[in-house]
């Protein structure tokens, strides 16, 4: 069979079998909805509660993408600073590591207390999680320029700025994009985890709060519906970042051959 078809068909068959089996089991054993709803009920709930859920999805998306954008910009700027000066790198890098290794659940309560706006607090949490892969990847990338090319630039009397713009940044591009791909998923996780910790309600709530709320009310189908949206968002972000990376690198980078 055509491998391209197989690539799509095989997981699709597995998915359909899995969902079918699930639905069948729930019906055959008459499992109550508040323990395990079937996929069909989850789909119906998703449609019925779309109004509330989409509002929350929108909030979560906003937090995730603002955090990702902030992580990308700050990560890039800081990596460039690191590449320019060893002293800056040596003085700041340990703190970036500390920020990375401290579990976000442990810092989130503090941040929520300090930031007077919950959305801002969530954004900061998501940013902290998303920031490090971009910083470390880009730092490695900026330092990976071909030795001989560096010499060539020196031979032609290139300025620091020219070396950065024409050599180091293009070299770092695939590294930065790989970091962005990891950080996309992490920003979503950060946004969700922080909201769990915050546990806020009201109009301005993201998907995590919908999951908590549905749990309290034993509306398990709704909980699943929110979960489906979280997963779908994660997949969409990963696909979007892969696509972006593919488009930017396809002309010249080896990795771009493997992407969709």
């Amino acid at each position: 069979m055509n491998p391209r078809v197989l690539k799509w068909l095989a997981p699709l068959v597995v998915g359909v079998l899995f969902l079918g089996g699930w639905e069948w089991m729930v019906r055959a054993r008459e499992i109550p909805h508040f323990i395990l709803p079937g996929p069909w009920l989850i789909a119906q709930t998703l449609v019925r509660d779309w109004h509330t859920l989409s509002g929350s999805l929108w909030i979560t998306l906003q937090i995730t993408f603002s955090a990702l954008a902030a992580a990308a910009i700050l990560g890039l700027v800081l990596a460039i600073l690191f590449a320019q000066s060893r002293v800056i790198e040596m003085s700041l890098f340990p703190y970036a590591v500390i920020l990375q290794v401290t579990p976000i659940v442990a810092i989130a309560p503090l941040i929520i207390i300090w930031a007077d706006n919950v959305l801002l607090a969530l954004l900061i949490c998501a940013w902290i999680v998303a920031f490090f892969p971009i910083l470390s990847n880009t730092t490695v990338g900026l330092n990976s320029a071909d030795r001989n090319l560096v010499d060539l630039f020196r031979l032609y009397g290139a300025s620091r700025w020219q070396v950065l713009m024409r050599l180091r940044l293009p070299t770092a591009m695939p590294f930065f994009l790989a970091g962005l791909r990891i950080s996309g998923g992490l920003a979503l996780i950060g946004a969700i985890v922080a909201e769990f910790v915050a546990g806020t309600g009201g109009r301005e709530s993201g998907l995590a709060y919908r999951i908590l709320e549905a749990g309290y009310q034993l509306q398990i189908a709704r909980m699943f519906a929110a979960l489906v949206l979280v997963s779908a968002t994660g997949i969409a972000i990963f696909a979007a970042m892969s696509w972006l990376s593919h488009m930017l690198l396809r002309r010249w980078h080896e990795s771009a051959g493997e992407q969709p």
Partner: peptide, 19 residues
């Protein structure tokens, strides 16, 4: 030792552009 992200002509033009 070419820049993989640049076309042949941009690679060759590099020393001139740097100057």
């Amino acid at each position: 030792t070419l820049m993989p992200w640049a076309t042949a002509v941009r690679n060759v033009a590099l020393p001139l552009e740097l100057a």
